[in-house]
């Protein structure tokens, strides 16, 4: 894709999509820097496939890359960087947001696919069918993963609150 028109369309898409998908990437990875790295990786790959992806829905396409890419990306990173575990504590710059931090820790305690279901259902406000499309699984699987995720999330938040007392 060296066509200037397509480059311009891609650039316009990135401008428009950046904030929205950055938020999802942060929630999926639990970390701003990792989220940005993941999003950039996906956007580079989207450029390669831009002509085809643009025929359908590039936002949905990018979302699929983020969600599915997060698992393989993370495994690859783990091999490359043995210390690249999710941070146990918030970035100190996060400051006083204790409740946010509780939620972040609880979210990060979920298996990655369950976390993706929670983020897509409750942050992106996607329907179950859209979540299924993003994850590449059946809607039934989304339902059961969501149910398990919410049970785990509730328990994790409760444990965090008890630990804080």
């Amino acid at each position: 894709m060296s066509d200037p028109t397509e480059d311009a369309a891609y650039a316009a898409f990135v401008e428009a999509a950046w904030d929205r998908h950055m938020a999802v990437a942060i929630l999926l990875t639990g970390d701003r820097h990792r989220g940005e790295e993941l999003l950039q990786d996906c956007l580079v790959r989207l450029y390669v496939r831009w002509r085809r992806a643009a025929l359908t829905d590039p936002h949905a396409y990018l979302r699929r890359m983020l969600v599915n890419g997060n698992v393989s990306w993370w495994r690859r990173r783990q091999r490359e960087l043995p210390t690249a575990e999710p941070p146990d504590h918030a970035d100190p710059r996060s400051g006083p947001y204790e409740q946010d931090e509780e939620l972040r820790r609880a979210l990060m305690s979920l298996p990655r696919r369950q976390r993706a279901v929670v983020v897509l259902r409750h942050y992106e406000d996607l329907t179950e069918k859209a979540v299924a499309a993003a994850l590449g699984c059946s809607v039934g699987t989304v339902k059961s993963q969501h149910s398990r995720a919410m049970t785990r999330l509730r328990a994790a938040l409760r444990q965090n609150q008890e630990a804080a007392r």
Partner: peptide, 25 residues
């Protein structure tokens, strides 16, 4: 979740950098 995702100001999209990396890829 919205608060958590937006608790730090967003950085601008590095559009030129992405296009350059995309071309290379």
């Amino acid at each position: 979740l919205r608060t958590l995702a937006h608790r730090e100001p967003a950085s601008p999209a590095p559009v030129s950098e992405l296009v350059r990396r995309g071309r290379r890829a």
